[in-house]
Structures are given as structure tokens and as C-alpha cells.
């Protein structure tokens, strides 16, 4: 019997190690472990969005292997995310959508580009959120809905996501050829985007000051 004890202990040890390794890694919403969402299961994003009501919220829809999207992300980090890095009243949600065939691990491409603690990453493997947001934003070319990617949205403190579809953004910019030259869909310019964010943050500050009095 004494002979079998170490063997049994080893088997139990291996079993525990196997179970631990097989358990799914919890998704944390970081650039290396984005939270998986879909059109039907966007609760994680919707809840996070609504929990942050009272803050200015930014939603970025990007493909992490699209160089134009990465450039946009870097420009907005320089203009908005880094300067407001410590401001908890600015929350950012980056939705990675694989239009060019990105994989979940490619979201790590954005790690070195974003310098802000209040950013949550999501992974949309079925390319569904782009359609959902496009419908909410009215992104159409005739009857055709233009898929929302390389799209940059600003939501004010009052915005709330009540139904299935996300609310219409207070301000949006894009880098899509199909929307070029349309006044209601301005092309991405980091300085303009920053002004819009600042405007909403200032309004927020003023409201806070008024309610304190």
C-alpha cells in the first residue's frame, strides 16, 4: 500500500493541474484578453456602457490588423486618451471586429497604442456589432447599410443604451471611403474629436458644480 501512495498523489496532482489548465481564462477586457460579444450577446458592453452613465463615453470600432484603424487609434490616443488618462469621467470601449480577418490575439496590436486606464476591449468574432452600430447611426449609402468599422463615436453623459440597439452617438467620425464627403459623417480629425470630447467633459463639470451648490 505504501508503494502506491506516491503514485496516487501524483495522479491527483496531475488531475488538479489538468482541470486548472482546461478552465477557461477569465476575460478581463484588456487588450490581450478582450471580452467576447455579439449582436445577441452584447450585455457585457451594454452594462458597462450604462454603468458609466454620467461619464463621457467613447466607442471605437476597429479591425486590429487594419493599419488605417491603428493610425486612427494612435492619433486619438495622442489627442484624447493620453491627455485625459487620469480622468475617470471619460470611459472608452474599443470593439475589435475582424473585417480583414483578424483573430482575437491581434487585439494585442493596440496595447502599445493606448495609454489610458479607463479603456475596455471587446472582441466581436462574428462581425455583428458593426452592423448594429451602423443601423443605429444611420450609416447608409442608398439602401445599403455601410458596415461600421474604423468608426469613432462620442456619447455624452446622458446617453443610455435601453433596447437591443445602441443609442445614436452624439458625435461620430470615420475613415471610410463610402462615407467620404458627407457632412453628417465627418472624416476623422483628432483635433476636432478632442474638441467634441472636451465640450462634453466641460458640460459634465459644469453640471457637477451646479448640483454641488
Amino acid at each position: 500500500m505504501r508503494f502506491y501512495r506516491p503514485l496516487i498523489a501524483m495522479c491527483i496532482g496531475l488531475l488538479i493541474a489538468g482541470v486548472a489548465a482546461a478552465a477557461p481564462t477569465p476575460q478581463t477586457g484588456t487588450c490581450t484578453e478582450p471580452v467576447t460579444i455579439s449582436a445577441k450577446d452584447s450585455v457585457a458592453l451594454r452594462d458597462a456602457f450604462n454603468r458609466a452613465r454620467g461619464s463621457v463615453r467613447l466607442v471605437f470600432l476597429v479591425d486590429p490588423i487594419c493599419s488605417g484603424c491603428l493610425r486612427g487609434l494612435k492619433d486619438l490616443d495622442t489627442a484624447v486618451l493620453t491627455p485625459f488618462a487620469g480622468n475617470s469621467k471619460l470611459q472608452t470601449y474599443v470593439i475589435h471586429t475582424p473585417v480583414l480577418g483578424a483573430q482575437e490575439k491581434d487585439s494585442a496590436n493596440t496595447c502599445s497604442l493606448i495609454h489610458n486606464e479607463h479603456v475596455t476591449h471587446y472582441w466581436d468574432p462574428g462581425q455583428e456589432l458593426g452592423t448594429t452600430f451602423a443601423q443605429a447611426l444611420g450609416m447608409k449609402d442608398g439602401d445599403r447599410t455601410i458596415y461600421a468599422w474604423d468608426v469613432w463615436l462620442v456619447y455624452g453623459p446622458q446617453a443610455e443604451w435601453t433596447g437591443e440597439a445602441p443609442p445614436k452617438a452624439d458625435f461620430m467620425m470615420h475613415q471610410l471611403k463610402d462615407l467620404m464627403g458627407r457632412a453628417e459623417f465627418p472624416f476623422l480629425r483628432a483635433s476636432t474629436f478632442r474638441e467634441e470630447v472636451e465640450k462634453r467633459l466641460d458640460v459634465h463639470k459644469a453640471t457637477d458644480a451646479a448640483s454641488a451648490r
Binding site: P64, I65, S67, G68, C69, L100, G101, D106, D150
Partner: peptide
């Protein structure tokens, strides 16, 4: 190729 090809970043 910028913005249209999947292998450029890699």
C-alpha cells in the same frame, strides 16, 4: 496596400 491587406501589420 495600407488599410486593405490583412498581412501588412504582421
Amino acid at each position: 496596400a495600407c488599410c486593405g491587406v490583412p498581412w501588412l501589420v504582421a
